[in-house]
């Protein structure tokens, strides 16, 4: 079976995003960018399925600016077989919305016919947590979000999901969309030889127009501001002092 993994290029998770002074957005110029952490987990899971002989081919897809090719190279270095870059924006500040991403992914999937798509549960920039669910709706496929365990059993996948109350296990019919949560696996680092090898793996370049998808946003961003800050607190010297302060504040 073929597994498709959508990967997004996002601000590195160690970098604190800064709002631009004019309120027009977050400053991404000269900021370290990386693969969305949840997508690393998704790539890792797909590669493990290949190593187990369950998957034959792993295809990574990214939609965005040209520089997302670097993110795809990372997926290839981890072990994906080939990659598809869909260029849909010129400016690093333009984020393609999950609905448009899902429409492009649907078109890619119509061509590629994978049996399983493993996406990340959430992009850590827009924090939408939506693309996998939207893609599943557009394809009319089953969905298993927030996965912490995936077992392929014939024409179905048994997936354990992290939910508010604890864990839920469901069985989805293939083809299906699964979205990866933090505890699905620990992604590997790409080794130097594999990074070299990845440079020779196929990376197809397309545009959103090739798929006839309109990527203009449905949500117009009219402003971006900093959250309310907290006033600086104090250090207390002892437990007794802490208890006294908490009583004063009326919270105990």
């Amino acid at each position: 079976m073929k597994v498709l993994v959508p990967v997004k290029r996002v601000i590195d998770y160690n970098v604190k995003a800064r709002v631009k002074a004019d309120g027009s957005g977050v400053d991404l110029a000269n900021v370290k960018m990386s693969m969305n952490p949840f997508d690393e987990i998704a790539v890792e899971e797909a590669i493990r399925l290949k190593e187990k002989g369950v998957a034959e081919e792993v295809v990574a897809v990214s939609i965005g600016v040209k520089q997302a090719a670097e993110t795809l190279r990372t997926a290839l270095a981890m072990g994906a077989d080939r990659a598809i870059l869909v260029v849909a924006a010129d400016d690093v500040h333009q984020d393609i919305e999950p609905l448009a991403v899902a429409k492009i992914l649907k078109a890619v999937i119509d061509e590629e016919q994978p049996k399983l798509v493993i996406a990340g549960k959430q992009a850590i920039d827009n924090d939408m947590n939506a693309t996998g669910q939207m893609l599943s709706a557009l394809l009319g496929w089953s969905q298993a979000t927030f996965a912490s365990k995936i077992e392929i059993e014939g024409e179905a996948a048994k997936v354990t999901r992290e939910v508010d109350g604890g864990l839920q296990t469901i069985e989805v019919r293939l083809p299906a969309i699964v979205t990866a949560d933090l505890r699905l696996n620990e992604p590997r680092y790409a080794s130097l030889p594999n990074i070299m090898k990845a440079k020779k793996k196929p990376l197809d370049e397309k545009t959103a127009a090739d798929y006839g998808v309109d990527v203009s946003p449905r949500l117009e961003i009219t402003g971006t501001r900093e959250p309310e800050g907290r006033k600086a607190g104090i250090k207390v010297g002892s437990v007794d002092e802490l208890v006294a302060k908490l009583k004063e504040a009326g919270v105990v």
């Binding site: 999950p98 609905l99 947590n129 939506a130 939207m134 599943s136 927030f146």
Partner: peptide, 23 residues
Amino acid sequence: ATTDAKNIMPRVAALLDAMIISD
């Protein structure tokens, strides 16, 4: 915005050709 709703609502939005507004 519970995990149940985060699972369901983007699917609803896509079926209605609308962009979900999360959280």
